Amino acid sequence: MGQARALMGLSAQLDEELDFREGDVITIIGVPEPGWFEGELEGRRGIFPEGFVELLGPL
């Protein structure tokens, strides 16, 4: 779908969440519900709030 750069780090609180560090580039693979993305980073998949990232182009 597209890519996004992390504006800040996120520590996953639930198993389905993706954790990442500020500056990581995450591949967006879905939008499971409004306000959330599903992404992949370094072979890991999970969901995260859209406010933690900036899109690097259209989805």
Rank of each mutant, 00 (worst) to 15 (best):
M1Q: 05
M1P: 01
M1D: 02
G2C: 13
G2A: 07
G2F: 06
G2E: 04
G2I: 13
Q3D: 05
Q3I: 12
Q3W: 06
A4Q: 05
A4F: 03
A4H: 02
A4Y: 04
A4V: 08
A4D: 01
R5A: 01
R5F: 06
R5W: 00
A6F: 08
A6M: 08
A6I: 06
A6G: 04
A6E: 00
L7F: 01
L7C: 09
L7T: 14
L7G: 01
L7R: 13
L7H: 05
M8N: 12
G9S: 15
G9H: 14
G9F: 02
G9N: 15
L10V: 10
L10M: 15
L10D: 06
L10A: 15
S11D: 15
S11V: 13
S11L: 07
A12Y: 00
A12F: 02
A12C: 08
A12Q: 09
A12W: 03
Q13C: 10
L14K: 15
L14T: 15
L14R: 15
L14E: 14
L14M: 15
L14Y: 13
L14N: 15
L14F: 15
D15N: 07
D15G: 11
D15M: 09
D15P: 15
E16V: 12
E16I: 13
E16A: 12
E16N: 13
E16K: 12
E17C: 13
E17K: 07
L18F: 08
L18E: 01
L18V: 01
L18Y: 04
L18N: 06
D19N: 12
D19E: 15
D19T: 15
D19F: 11
F20G: 03
F20E: 07
R21E: 13
R21K: 14
E22F: 06
E22D: 06
G23T: 02
G23C: 04
G23V: 04
G23L: 01
D24A: 06
D24T: 06
D24H: 01
D24Q: 08
D24I: 02
V25G: 04
V25E: 10
I26K: 03
I26R: 01
I26M: 03
I26A: 02
I26T: 04
T27H: 09
T27W: 00
T27N: 15
T27I: 01
T27D: 14
T27V: 03
T27C: 05
T27L: 02
I28G: 01
I28L: 06
I29R: 10
I29M: 12
I29N: 03
I29S: 01
I29D: 07
G30I: 04
G30P: 12
G30L: 04
G30E: 01
V31Q: 15
V31A: 11
V31R: 15
P32I: 07
P32H: 10
P32Y: 05
P32V: 08
P32R: 12
E33T: 07
E33C: 14
P34Q: 11
P34F: 03
P34S: 10
P34Y: 06
G35S: 04
G35L: 01
G35R: 03
G35T: 01
G35C: 02
W36A: 04
W36Y: 14
W36D: 01
W36F: 14
W36H: 09
W36N: 00
W36I: 15
F37S: 03
E38W: 08
E38D: 06
G39H: 00
G39L: 03
G39E: 04
E40H: 09
E40N: 05
E40Y: 10
L41P: 07
L41T: 02
L41Y: 11
L41C: 10
L41I: 14
L41G: 04
E42N: 15
E42V: 01
G43A: 05
G43S: 06
G43C: 03
R44N: 05
R44L: 01
R44F: 00
R44K: 13
R45G: 01
R45W: 08
R45S: 08
G46P: 05
G46Y: 02
G46Q: 01
G46H: 06
I47N: 07
I47C: 12
I47M: 05
F48N: 04
F48G: 03
F48S: 03
F48Q: 09
F48A: 09
P49F: 04
P49Q: 09
P49R: 13
P49D: 02
E50P: 02
E50Y: 05
E50N: 04
E50Q: 13
G51S: 15
F52G: 08
F52L: 13
F52Q: 05
F52M: 14
V53R: 01
E54G: 03
E54P: 01
E54F: 01
E54V: 05
E54D: 09
L55K: 02
L55M: 09
L55N: 02
L55D: 01
L56Y: 06
L56D: 08
L56C: 10
L56M: 10
G57K: 12
G57N: 10
P58E: 11
P58F: 07
P58N: 07
L59N: 13
L59T: 06
